[in-house]
Amino acid sequence: MNIQQTHFELFGLPTTFDLDTKKLDQQYRLLQSEVHPDRFAASADSERRLSLQYATKANEAYQTLKNPLTRARYLLQLKGIDTQEESNTAMPVDFLLQLMEWREALEEAAETANADELEALKKKLREAAKTLQSTLASALDIDRDDAIATETVRKLRFIDKAQQEVDQALEILES
């Protein structure tokens, strides 16, 4: 294991958005057992430290690649592109209008304790996320359109957040 490797290289995977998640899981487990700090309990301090560093890197790499949003962001980062999720507030108006409609529906469903409506919204958001993920696959792997990929990462971040809020609202209803 080399600390300079990219997350993809680390697991012997091609640098693409479309990912063999089974292989990622397998490779992660393999690597984890190789670098697990317990295996270095009797080793020298320096080796123990290194194994801990590797285990941390493997874990971080796995978490990043497993999630489509963070995987896409990471692919863009490798190309030196910042998705500006903290600083840039300009988004396509039709997307923001749609999002506002969903947020409105969420607020109303939460207030009226309407679980059916929340489930329906959850389904809509899941479909939206799926569509965005296939956009990412074509933008990153086929068309090499970094502008579209960046915008799609930003959209997916909004959808992710909305999904979390729907889940929270459902949890509150169920408790």
Binding site: T89, L96, L99
Partner: peptide, 13 residues
């Protein structure tokens, strides 16, 4: 004016 902050999911009109 419509803007949104991806990091926190806020939308503003």
């Amino acid at each position: 004016g419509m803007v949104g902050a991806p990091a926190c999911g806020d939308v503003m009109k």
